[in-house]
Design a protein around this nucleic acid. Structure first.
Lengths: 202, 202
DNA sequence: CACATTTGATTTCGCTTCGATACTAATATT
DNA sequence: AATATTAGTATCGAAGCGAAATCAAATGTG
């Protein structure tokens, strides 16, 4: 089977279909779909990115909406707010103990199980293709992409020490798999334009 | 890099992230995110599946909600309703001329472009992995999956003629890439249970 | 045939979600 | 010091969506 022109659109539609299909399972659980998304984000983002603005950007929504979602999760006792030390405007959200516990019932586990059923070759290809896709998409849109530090261009693994050029600091091993707002896709050819449209949130 | 246990979750999160990211672009366009989804569905589903119920199932929502979305698109003049001949309860939705034209401005094209930027190996892997994933997910959930006739178990390509065992009819070449409600994933091991929970829409 | 049941589609109602706007406070810039 | 920008929040109105009720056609059962 060769690559006919419709293949691309089929892939695109399958991606949004899978995204929507996972939303379906969220109904009937303890949290709504966005609330689960927020919980996942704050569970996986690094210290720097665990803020309302970063989540708004991640979830392609406004800061106002992000605030509401976060407020509802704080009222449920799943998130706590901490003042940032360096910038007193900024706040940092952390999962509470019960917040960590409820993640054990994340409906996304259905999808994870399905991924586990895939043969290793396909799973590895997904692991490689999806971050690249997110980076490309962000470049086309002129928005920021999110990705894990391990996939980031700012990251260099020089033997024993792991260094992030963005934060200018060593990275703890635990941070390698974390989401970061300053993510820059590494495998894309170098950007020809600054591409700072910032259309998303004014 | 070997497959550590967190890889699976990363893939899952990337999938929902990409799904959500595409929704973001829909804001500011002529249609809302659901309306675009509906337009895509009716543009790509085969004759049999171009109905409100099928779309409700595809979009993991209720028939009532599906009706509303369709009504709004008919009022905008992008869809027309036709009575089915064999079952007079059923209706079939088709894109109007202006409906076909607006698809040229589908915001999903951003994602398609990003996919085009991928190297062929990864694109082919996606083309293979995503349908399998949709099938697995549906099996775990006990819901119906959607897929194209070309990927379907009911389909057999015996030389010149293409035959669908489900409809018991020859398939036009144009139908091969169409979405079908009766899709059954072909690469999954044979189902051990009937799996007819039908939890979605009573 | 008469009757109940199921299925496809639609409408109505009420709650939730979400985006736009406006606003406050802290930091950056000039 | 004055202005601009940024982080976060609150408010309001419109849209989305799920549940339930309704209607019509098809199917099943005695």
């Amino acid at each position: 089977m060769t690559d006919n022109p419709t293949t691309t659109e089929e892939i695109a539609e399958l991606l949004v279909y899978l995204g929507r299909a996972t939303r379906g399972a969220d109904a009937g659980s303890d949290l709504t779909a966005v609330q689960w998304t927020a919980m996942r984000f704050f569970a996986r983002a690094n210290q720097l990115s665990r803020t309302p603005s970063a989540f708004a950007s991640f979830n392609a929504t406004t800061r106002g909406t992000a605030s509401q979602i976060i407020k509802s999760l704080m009222q449920k006792g799943f998130l706590v707010r901490h003042q940032a030390v360096d910038d007193r405007r900024s706040v940092r959200l952390d999962l509470t103990r019960s917040g960590q516990e409820i993640m054990r019932y994340d409906p996304l586990r259905d999808l994870s199980e399905a991924i586990d059923q895939l043969e290793g070759r396909l799973r590895r290809a997904l692991r490689q293709a999806l971050p690249a896709l997110a980076g490309e998409l962000a470049k086309i849109r002129g928005t920021v992409a999110f990705g894990t530090c391990g996939d980031c261009r700012h990251f260099s693994d020089s033997g024993a020490a792991s260094y992030c050029a963005c934060v200018d600091a060593e990275l703890a091993l635990a941070d390698l798999g974390c989401l970061c707002v300053n993510f820059a896709a590494s495998e894309s050819r170098k950007a020809t334009m600054p591409s700072l449209k910032s259309k998303e949130i004014s």
